[in-house]
Simulated assay, not measured.
Amino acid sequence: MATYNLNDIVLGVDIGGSHITAAIINLKEKKEIKSTWNRNLINAKGTSHQILQGWASTILQSMESVETKPEKIRIAMPGPMDYETGICLIQDQDKFRSLYSLNIKELLAAEIGYDPADISFHNDAACFLKGELYGGSLYGFDKAIGLTLGTGLGTSYTSSGKAEDADLWNMGFLEGIAEDYISTRWFVKRFYELTGKQVADVKELIDNHAGSTDFYQVFSEFSNNLASFIYQFIQRETPLAAVIGGNIAHADTYFMKETQQELNELLGYSFPVKKSFLGESAILLGAGAST
């Protein structure tokens, strides 16, 4: 069983709206220890006890293959949340409602046998951008924006060399807010409106309906929505590049080219929009490197 210098390792955790991923991060080598990588599905509509037990189980699994257990656990988590105290403030989204107002830092610490002071929470969108700047698609850029597309919409930007949460998921957009149009639930809702057929997520949409006229219409509309949103984001932050990650990014074949073309037309110049190079590792590395 492997041993490591305690100063060199932390446990990085990525909590999403439907999953949790955890791995021990070797800070000295700036990479995750592959043997400790674990990913499990989580029912974000479950009870607080069910969610916390699912998180705890995955975290403990990641520590089983190393003799030296990390002293610090750094968790990337979507907001809204009081990241300093560990109190979850998610209330009006389609996830984690049972955790609202709970101190999940203290509750999780009790589940895994850690001191709450050794667990820290960080915004997942900021962690994603931090990881990509650290050694991913945006390596070499010093001013950029990041978008994580999945159950929800995460947005981040660089400020004074640091990655920060842009918190634009609820920005007014079209006839609602940005997350209404740039998320898994938009795909599910829009495809049902066009066809009367239910799909669970973007993967099922691709697996069962790729090639149909309605399939291409949905992705074309999404491309236009995404380009319009990125355009507005650029006006706010004047970045030099953007990176896109999250589960929906796996479907980039169906929207990235059209999004890029539409965005360039809106801007009047070519702006680089890159797909995440690190994938899930970006958030884990970004979380691990956070303090």
Rank of each mutant, 00 (worst) to 15 (best):
D92P: 00
A125W: 08
H49E: 14
F277C: 00
Q235M: 12
L153N: 05
D92L: 03
M77V: 14
G16R: 08
L285A: 06
L149H: 10
A241N: 07
S228T: 14
A144C: 07
H49A: 14
F233R: 01
S220M: 04
W55S: 00
I145F: 05
S137Y: 05
S101V: 06
A163C: 10
L99N: 13
Y114K: 01
E29S: 11
T238D: 15
T259F: 08
V273F: 02
G268T: 10
I33D: 13
S18D: 04
N208L: 12
K30R: 13
I182H: 07
D180A: 07
N26A: 10
T158H: 01
C88P: 01
S281W: 01
E258W: 02
S57T: 08
R97N: 13
L194H: 05
L168Y: 14
K30V: 08
V218P: 03
S35A: 15
V13F: 04
T85L: 09
Y231G: 02
T47Q: 08
T259R: 02
G288K: 02
E265P: 00
Y216A: 06
S48E: 15
S220E: 13
E111D: 08
N7K: 11
G54R: 08
T155K: 06
K45N: 13
G245Y: 01
P116I: 01
E106G: 09
S120F: 00
L205E: 01
T3N: 15
S48T: 05
V202A: 15
S62P: 10
V218M: 04
V13G: 03
L267W: 02
Y231T: 02
T253N: 10
K72Q: 14
L285K: 09
A125I: 04
E221F: 04
K31F: 01
E204W: 06
I244A: 08
K274G: 10
Y157H: 07
S220P: 02
T36P: 02
Q261S: 07
D118W: 02
D201C: 04
E132N: 06
K45Q: 14
G211L: 12
L153W: 07
Q53F: 00
T68G: 02
D94Q: 10
L138M: 05
Y231E: 11
G288V: 02
C127L: 07
S220Y: 04
W37K: 12
S48R: 14
T3Y: 14
I51E: 11
K130N: 11
S98I: 09
E84H: 13
L11P: 04
D201A: 02
P272A: 11
M171G: 00
N247K: 10
I206C: 13
Y192A: 14
D142K: 12
N7T: 03
N40H: 11
S65N: 15
F229V: 09
D207L: 13
T155E: 05
H19G: 00
G17I: 05
S65W: 06
F96G: 09
G113D: 02
